[in-house]
Design a protein around this nucleic acid. Structure first.
Lengths: 110, 110
DNA sequence: AGTATTAATTCTACAATGTAGAATATATCC
DNA sequence: GGATATATTCTACATTGTAGAATTAATACT
């Protein structure tokens, strides 16, 4: 049995973005989704590096190349979350929630 | 304005543990609280290193030395979360939740 | 064909955080 | 003082976070 791993803070956001974006998930859209929802500023480098690392850990998978992008530019590289990726996300979210449960209301945390 | 920072995954757990433990928060109890609630295995090194780093970022504060520990052993070093620490926690939790919101039910994540 | 324009990804580099385990310190008791 | 108990500090390295410049690939235009 491989030791259970947990997602880093940013890795978590990236995987969540992939899940929400579904079919339309690729570097640029992941970045804007995170910016849009969290309001935080995110560099391309951060996103692509993280996507690569997640892929080499098999938490994410990519299918490259797009048929015909009607307008110029490099082809997109689409990503999707693997089953293992979803598991890692669940595990991570579970530990966060088990620790936060209770104090959230006491300290009126979100 | 200093750029908004976010807590790392483990830093988050440690701060949460401090909040729950209140008056009784110190290295050893933080470790066991995290183990107990999340079921994950946690080394002392991880906890103390993180606590130190959080302190140097002023997200946490420590008051050292205990009056009379009725039974032998080195004195405890107690920790508490600063206002900035609570803020960082809120910010971090907010971005996690804003990204997870919606998919949690769709993917039956915790 | 050659060049400009657009869209997106890859590379490079370094900072911050995660993690373990041995070593060390401090206190009590006999 | 030596044994025992309790807790923290140190050392070292692996993984994750983050930014921005450079590069690649495609289309459109002249």
């Amino acid at each position: 049995m491989g030791r259970e791993k947990y997602l880093g803070e940013f890795e978590f956001l990236v995987i969540a973005a992939l899940l929400r974006l579904g079919k339309n998930a690729y570097g640029v859209s992941v970045r804007s989704e995170i910016k849009k929802r969290t309001g935080r500023q995110v560099s391309f480098g951060a996103v692509y590096t993280t996507l690569d690392r997640l892929e080499s850990k098999s938490l994410v998978r990519s299918r490259s190349g797009e048929a015909t992008p009607s307008r110029g530019g490099r082809p997109k590289k689409h990503f999707e979350v693997t089953a293992r990726g979803v598991d890692a996300m669940k595990r991570t979210l579970e530990s966060v929630q088990s620790m936060v449960d209770g104090i959230d209301t006491a300290w009126n945390l979100p």
